[in-house]
Computed example of a mutant assay.
Amino acid sequence: MIDEAAAKLTGEPIVIADISDLTGVPGFDPSPMPSGARAAAAYVNDNGGVGGRPIKITSCDSKTDPGASAACAQQAVAQNSLAVIGLDNFSGTGGDALFESNDIVTLNAPNQPTLIQSPNSFAIGPGGIGEFYGLGHHLGTTAQVKRVSLLMQDSPVGHTYAEQLTEAATAAGVETVNPVFFNPQITDFSAPVARATSTDPQAVFTLVNGSQIPLVWNLLQQQGIRSEQIYIHSVAMDATVFEAAGSVAVGANVVSEFTNPDDLSDPDVRIYREAMDKYGFGDISRTALASWGFANVMFLAETARTIGADKVDAATLHEYLTTTLGPGSTTTIPTFLGSPVGAAPPEHPGIHRPGISILRWDGTNFVTVEDFFSAPQLRPGRP
């Protein structure tokens, strides 16, 4: 069914290349992102495509490996891709410069310093920098806690995230931030959890995934941390995992980059959930990465329509986004399942949508605790 609509359209296909680390990180499965993108492409194609042009999604596994990432980038260029989407943590080693030289914008998750600083980056999710500056701000202002502990992977990304969260939390009034780093390969979290809880924190952030979630959260609760005091990043947001975790997950908080997938009063969410069910991806619809993949394609499809089906290609898309969202611009572009994109803050030219929200798992559904907001550190400058 997912390819039937495209087959009925006679226009030249619009290729969108998903490059994601589908393998290489224990307990981490980003496959919902390309799956969400395919569902959105099918939805767009079922509704006439972009002026009769079907959207085609290609998927390449960058394998959390610089060489594989570079090979995927070369493939995306050879396919004359309109844009690159996905979650590729090594695109800076060979892909990003290649995309820029070929006028191909990247919507890759902006977790690398190179993407955060890149004028060729137009990600519609704010990535780690949005989440961790945002969460730090939330903890100090909305939650009004004074002591926070961080359970972070001992990796360059983990240390960067800890610095960002600490900076924002301290600026927002948090008095003590206790970062605890762990080897991503461990299976026994007793020691890092003990260090994290030794400072009597009022909130604990956990950079863990999949099967690690119930294990770590159970240990935290054994040490007196209530589920309402636990926070986790959006990539780990997965209703199926939370349901399997049982009572230890009830009340835990998630940093979200997209609209609550259980808020069926939102028309975007209704379209999204119905499309995911129709095209065979209903079981992953309540994950952050599926929302992101779907939103990527919807954003690009709508932008392509604005440019014009007969004019849109990588070069015209690059020109449109660069001009419309240039420094100091007050123009915004709607984002499906998210707050609008706009001009980037001067210090972070690759961050065009800094908005995040805080959700809470109630055992059955995600409930919105705080709707979209942006940390002061990421708000765009205005003329």
Rank of each mutant, 00 (worst) to 15 (best):
L317S: 04
Y161S: 06
G381I: 12
T303D: 14
G308T: 09
V145D: 08
L82M: 01
Q212E: 15
T364N: 15
K8C: 03
L207P: 00
P66V: 02
D371N: 14
Q212T: 13
L300N: 11
I230W: 07
K63W: 00
P26W: 05
V241E: 05
G92H: 11
T306Y: 00
A5N: 11
I124D: 08
V248H: 06
P354Q: 12
G381K: 04
D283K: 14
F366Y: 15
F132N: 11
G86P: 11
G381H: 01
A375D: 08
G342R: 11
A343H: 04
A68I: 02
A315Y: 00
D188Q: 01
D88W: 01
T58V: 09
A245Q: 07
T141R: 11
V174Q: 07
V157E: 10
G246A: 06
N218I: 00
E131V: 02
M33D: 10
A252M: 10
T306D: 08
S339A: 15
S101T: 14
R270Q: 13
S20F: 02
G24Y: 08
A7E: 15
P30I: 04
A41L: 10
S265W: 03
G94Y: 00
Q222A: 04
Y272S: 08
A83T: 13
G280D: 12
I230F: 08
A194Q: 15
H159M: 10
A343D: 05
T316H: 01
A78W: 00
V177Y: 08
A275G: 12
S59I: 15
S91D: 13
F336C: 05
L325D: 07
D18T: 02
E4D: 10
M1V: 10
S69E: 11
L9N: 04
G127M: 07
Q229M: 11
Q153W: 01
Q117M: 14
T142V: 14
V180H: 06
V174I: 09
T199A: 07
L264D: 15
V367L: 05
D268N: 14
N111K: 08
A42E: 10
P13Q: 06
A245L: 10
E175N: 10
L98M: 15
F299V: 09
Q377R: 04
L337G: 08
D154L: 07
L22Y: 09
T106N: 04
L115C: 03
Q74T: 13
A172V: 05
T322M: 04
V241T: 15
A314L: 00
T10H: 09
V44C: 12
G86Y: 03
A37K: 06
F99M: 09
G128K: 02
G51M: 03
L98P: 03
N218E: 15
V369I: 13
D268W: 01
I186N: 04
T303C: 14
P110D: 05
M1C: 08
T199I: 14
M237V: 01
S329Y: 02
P156I: 02
A40H: 12
F205R: 09
V204S: 03
A17N: 02
P32N: 04
N47E: 11
G48V: 14
L321Y: 01
N209S: 10
F99Q: 08
D263V: 02
A304W: 11
Y320I: 07
T64H: 06
R53Y: 03
R353K: 11
I16E: 11
E228Y: 00
